[in-house]
Write a protein that binds this DNA or RNA. Structure first.
Lengths: 146, 146
DNA sequence: CTTTAACCCGACTGAACCACTATGCTTGTT
DNA sequence: AACAAGCATAGTGGTTCAGTCGGGTTAAAG
């Protein structure tokens, strides 16, 4: 299960990325439009800013805006930023590898072999799907079910 | 990340499934062999027993034994039993569906579309890989790296 | 028939994490 | 100078994790 916070982060980023001309959007407006608790969103956006995904402008007509292009921001990157490693086992994380502690010889570990396949499969999807991909989908495609 | 408890459960099941003739194995022996805290393992095995995966015999020469054949027990089943739904979003779980609360129209939800692909991919692996599969692998294959 | 060795079961605990909320501060525009 | 926007830290109530504790109950051996 991905966290609520990650869901909020992704939705906020999609809202910003959908802005024409990349103009800034107020926290409050994002919060209202996407139904996210205002103050919680504030600290999520701070995280995204510290990571360099978005920028902010203060004062009147300020707000948050996309700093990187939507085509370059993957779901995987956002999830790692908020939730930490995607890998189902610490010993499978490429970004935050940790030994499992219990299993002695790692490349004989039977569990690891299975979960490595899971990790690869999810990485294949999450690290190749960008914000732009899902925005496009929204514009061009009809609902799957009527 | 899968829980420590699930890892223990899978390792314990593999230990039992590897037993020749399906003879019972003491909790203490499993605990020692697989490096699992004794009392914690005890309650894990109870869960597995209540779910009908294993059986127990009391008294002298008792212990736990496999109740179902290793070919019929998938990783997915065990993980769901211990950790709950595999799905990354509650609205994607086939076993324990719950609406997302925030997103209004579910089949227009952009996040859902992406995570549905993740959910399918992991199910494809975890619901088709059985205990027998990884036991066989252990017998026949050499280590991947020397 | 009593002891012993096994499983059975509920309660508890300390640490961490989640999803927020509160409060104040800084900074840029008007 | 006033106001409005973001910046930042601390706190909070609830839940989960990863066990531990202390006692049951049951079956076989002596």
């Amino acid at each position: 299960m991905i966290s609520q916070k990650s869901k909020y982060a992704l939705r906020a980023l999609l809202a910003l990325a959908a802005r024409p001309g990349g103009e800034p959007m107020l926290i409050s407006d994002i919060a209202e439009q996407e139904v996210i608790p205002r103050k919680f969103l504030e600290q999520i956006l701070l995280d995204l800013k510290r990571a360099g995904l978005v920028a902010s402008r203060r004062g009147k007509a300020g707000g948050y805006l996309m700093l990187r292009r939507a085509e370059t921001v993957t779901f995987g990157e956002v999830l790692r930023l908020i939730d930490g490693p995607l890998a189902p086992l610490p010993c499978l994380s490429k970004m935050a590898y940790r030994r499992c502690g219990d299993c002695a010889n790692e490349n004989a570990c039977k569990l690891r072999k299975v979960f490595a396949r899971v990790a690869d499969a999810t990485r294949d999807i999450l690290d190749t799907t960008t914000l732009a991909d899902v925005l496009q989908a929204g514009v061009t495609s009809l609902p799957v079910e009527i």
